[in-house]
Structures are given as C-alpha cells and as structure tokens.
Nucleic acid binder design. Structure first.
Lengths: 138, 138
DNA sequence: CAGAATCCTGCGAGATACTG
DNA sequence: CAGTATCTCGCAGGATTCTG
C-alpha cells in the first residue's frame, strides 16, 4: 500500500479506445469502470464519502449505507482502496478505529457521478411514467 | 413482472431525503438509474445508438455490440423502450425490419454517460496501475 | 469495533434451438 | 430477420458467526 495516493496521471495522455463496441472488450476503460461503479454499493460508498467531505469510519459508513452487510461493506471498501479511489487510515487504539476517505483520484469521480445523479433526479420520474404507461398498454 | 416493491424491510424512517444513503431506497432515482444503466449492455446499447446518430436494426446492433446474445439484446432493448429511452419502428416487409433509435429522452442520457466515459478513459489506466501495485504489495 | 470465514440462494446472463 | 423459449451455471450478495 505504498503511495497510490499521489499517483496522478499526466492529464494529457489520451484514451485507449473510442468506439462504444469495445465495451465488450475486457480491457475497455468504460467497461472496467462499469464493472466497478455499476454496483450500487460502490457508487453509494463514493457518494457517501463525498457527502461527508472528510473521513468516515467503518461503522459510520455502515450506518449511512443503510442495509449493507459488513461483508459487502468490507468488500466494497477493499475494492475501492485497491483501485486507489479510497484511502484507509488505521488508528491503532485498543478498539481499533479505521477511517476512510476519498483520495484525490476518488474525488475526480464524484463529478461524473453527480452528472448521472442529476440526470436521474430530473428524468427518472419521466422514465417511471413511461414504464407504467408501457405496462398499461401491454 | 410488474412491481417488485416490498422486497425490503423498509426501516421506520420514511424520508424524502436526497442524501446518497437513499440509494438503498428502491424509489431513489439514482438507484433506479443504476438498476438500468449499471448494466454493460444497456449502456452499450445507448452509446451505440448515440454513435450511430440515427437508426440501427436489430442485426446491426447485434453486430456492433459484439458478443451479445439475441436474448440479452432483445431484453435490453425492450427495457429501454419501456423506459422511453429508445424508440422502436417496425417496417412491415416480408422479412420484417425493425429499427431502433434514441428518443429525445434517451439522448439526454448520453451526456452524463459521456462524462463517465471520459473519466474512464482518462483515469482507468491509473486505476489499473493502482490495483496492480496494490496486489503486488499484498 | 473492524473485519474474516463460512454457508446458502436467487437470478443475471450465456448458449442453444425454435418460430412467424 | 427478429425475436421467443428453455436450460444451465456462476457468482453476486445476504445472513450469520467468530476473532484480534
């Protein structure tokens, strides 16, 4: 767990692929992203940490992300840490306290996510109406 | 296959909150969005249709979305049509031709998606490096 | 408190074959 | 060509229990 923290890219280096069909390719960036962010828990964890605007402990996250099992939380956090999106800080007290926060990299993900979320809040009601209408006329 | 509500032991708090924690709530817009767009195929379909900038036929989509089974394609398209994101046009020829295109609503989704995609193309390499480094120092 | 280990289950999703 | 119908299997993900 060395410094995957400050490991920022040269913003200049470009994408690998640009055609959408490559989503099928396991190496396609967008596919890789979806493999991670496609999960509810991952997204929720990032959004929760972003909302906290600082650190949250395991139990706090567990409370905020109502309904998540400790297993899934640990798993989700580990994946995020592995990817360098979340940083883990252990306080070596007798009952250990572990704090999680978004890394700089993790924070860059918040904006695109917010875009999705804004879309959802604006249009999902329409989508629900569509779906109901569609079902009604079946 | 109509309503899938009630699967959750909704906790006592009946909140109309907008905090990210609501992703747990089956009614949360963002959750609903993730349930749809979280899937690779759905995203790929929208992106493919957006890239085509017009209509695509079933077989064309099948070709573009390499590797998808007819079942998954039909399923994905039906869901998108149900949500009003994609429009279906049937040409009643002897071998029927069916065309799909994004609706106006569907097009509004492209931008947020593009945001995600740009993030992916810029940062996924970093993420991969982080993951490899993380695994290496395990 | 933070997590690891274990068991169990539903259904997401692929492959295949068939029909209008 | 544009789908539907079936079967199967993997594994995500929930509940539960245990430990440092």
């Amino acid at each position: 767990m060395s410094g995957q923290e400050g490991t920022f890219p040269s913003p200049g280096d470009a994408g690998v692929t640009t055609s959408p069909g490559d989503l099928f390719d396991p190496l396609c960036p967008t596919r890789l992203l979806l493999d991670r962010v496609g999960s509810r828990w991952t997204t929720m964890a990032v959004l929760s940490l972003a909302a906290a605007d600082g650190e949250l402990r395991f139990a706090e996250l567990k409370r905020v992300m109502a309904g998540i099992s400790p297993k899934m939380l640990a798993q989700t956090l580990k994946a995020l840490e592995r990817d360098g999106l979340v940083a883990r800080r252990v306080e070596a007290t007798k009952p250990p306290r572990v704090h999680y926060r978004l890394t700089g990299l993790g924070m860059t993900l918040v904006e695109p996510l917010r875009g999705l979320r804004e879309w959802a809040e604006r249009y999902i009601p329409v989508v629900r109406d569509n779906a109901r209408a569609f079902d009604g006329t079946l």
